[in-house]
């Protein structure tokens, strides 16, 4: 299983590299255009691979399950964010090298006098810069999530289209009909991707709707949204995975929000998500009425006990609503009558806001489960753990005798907690491949 995933992972890296370098191979194939100075050709090459990477960003976010499965959706999203900076650096290096080695090209920056090929190139670069800036500082500039998604999509399409126009207008590397055909193919591939993401996929999602069964209030300002499939068998998922939810809108509107399943994977006729009231969308979950139609795209993610079936024991470390994917795993393990040793270390502000408190207590009779509640503000007379989930606390509860792949640890909660726990586990000598994090702040 591990070996297969690794091979798949390597395969997709090679495909990525191949597609990134494809433009250079196309240029070198057959009769080449007249060669120019080394720095100029290097600058052009960086521009070409930058454009290919920019176009490939659409593949990364198109949620193709086969690409995501060897890594998990979170790694693909981190990669999407990090590679965008590399892409920007490469594309920026393209004009910078020109300006350094041929300062007269600086006049191309004047949009009033510059030829159209330069206008298209400069505008593409500006679109990309704005796109990256609003993505990095979305929260600081208080750009609402859905509005950001719209701008993100529009700027991305603008940047790639303008960059393609730039190449066509320069036309230096279009010297044979074969190369023109290859470029056309590259462009069509990209247009197909756009059509798939914006039209085909939403169309398929619309044909598999879900209906709200009920919403249930939980402790800790959270609501459980229970859904059932309409006219189809529902969705099979691994416990701990997540799906993108569209509500009060059509799948074509691109207004989706990712949430972890909290229900057991053993039951696909009814799915549930437990959601904390945090933003505009999550605050409206409680207003959903039975019978309301919603859409789900999923499942995604690698955060699951099912990815590590050979472990002898599992440890779950949750903070607040980070319990949601853990509940899915605990419920599933209980339904499967799994009797492997489990530990749940669960941090909350106070006793009253411990989401699923009662159900977790009840699990102790069905599962071989040890629960460690950690409260920031414990009630009077509290005998359990208090404060935050620290290195010292983890040292007490994380099994010290372990071999690789023997004890798998799952972490989900607020970012500071997760960072602290990951650092502590690393200090405790836990092998990196044995702990897994689910971060809700991907976008």
């Amino acid at each position: 299983m591990h070996r297969k995933k690794t091979l798949q992972g390597v395969f997709w890296i090679l495909v990525y590299l191949l597609l990134t370098l494809a433009p250079l191979a196309i240029i070198l194939a057959g009769p080449r255009p007249e060669g120019r100075e080394l720095w100029r050709e290097f600058s052009v090459a960086l521009g070409f691979v930058g454009l290919a990477m920019m176009a490939l960003q659409f593949v990364l976010t198109a949620r193709f399950k086969t690409i995501k499965s060897p890594y998990g959706a979170d790694v693909v999203y981190y990669f999407h964010r990090q590679i965008s900076l590399v892409t920007f650096a490469l594309i920026l290096a393209h004009p910078l090298l020109l300006f350094i080695f041929a300062p007269q090209t600086l006049r191309l920056l004047n949009i009033f006098t510059a030829p159209w090929r330069a206008r298209a190139g400069v505008t593409a670069l500006v679109a990309l810069a704005v796109l990256i800036a609003i993505s990095i500082w979305r929260k600081q500039i208080k750009l609402e999530y859905n509005r950001w998604r719209v701008w993100h999509g529009l700027l991305a399409i603008a940047a790639v289209t303008l960059a393609m126009m730039h190449i066509l207008l320069v036309g230096h590397y279009m010297n044979t009909p074969l190369k023109q055909a290859l470029w056309l193919g590259y462009g069509l591939f990209w247009v197909f991707l756009l059509l798939y993401v914006r039209l085909i996929k939403p169309f398929l999602l619309q044909r598999k709707p879900y209906e709200v069964v009920k919403t249930v209030q939980e402790r800790g300002d959270s609501w459980t949204l229970v859904l059932k499939p309409i006219g189809h068998p529902g969705m099979s998922f691994m416990p701990g995975q997540f799906a993108w939810l569209t509500a009060w809108a059509s799948p074509f509107s691109d207004q989706e929000h990712p949430f972890s399943f909290s229900s057991s994977a053993a039951c696909t006729e009814q799915l549930s998500f437990t959601i904390k009231e945090r933003g505009d969308f999550t605050r409206k979950i409680k207003e959903m009425s039975p019978g309301q139609r919603v859409y789900l795209d999923g499942p995604f993610g690698a955060f699951s006990v099912d990815r590590h079936p050979h472990a002898n024991q599992y440890v779950f470390i949750a903070g607040g609503i980070g319990i949601s994917p853990m509940m899915s795993m605990l419920r599933t393990l209980a339904d499967r009558q799994d009797q492997r040793p489990l530990t749940l270390i669960y941090g909350n502000r106070d006793w009253e806001s411990v989401t699923f408190r009662e159900e977790i207590e009840a699990f102790q009779s069905r599962l071989n489960l040890k629960v460690v509640h950690v409260l920031e503000n414990p009630p009077e007379g509290w005998k359990g753990e208090s404060g935050l989930i620290t290195y010292e606390l983890l040292e007490r509860y994380v099994p010290s005798e372990r071999n690789r792949n023997d004890c798998e640890i799952f972490i989900c909660g607020p970012k500071p907690m997760m960072d602290a726990v990951e650092t502590a586990l690393s200090r405790l000598g836990v092998y990196m491949g044995d702990y897994h994090s689910e971060r809700f702040d991907l976008v």
Partner: peptide
């Protein structure tokens, strides 16, 4: 930890593409 996988992937791919771009430039330049 998973963030680190993606960071290393990004660095790896960034370095490889710059190297290949340079090789391209050497092959293509006069």
């Amino acid at each position: 930890m998973r963030q680190r996988i993606s960071t290393w992937l990004t660095i790896l791919i960034g370095v490889i593409t710059v190297i290949f771009s340079f090789i391209f430039a050497v092959l293509q330049s006069r």
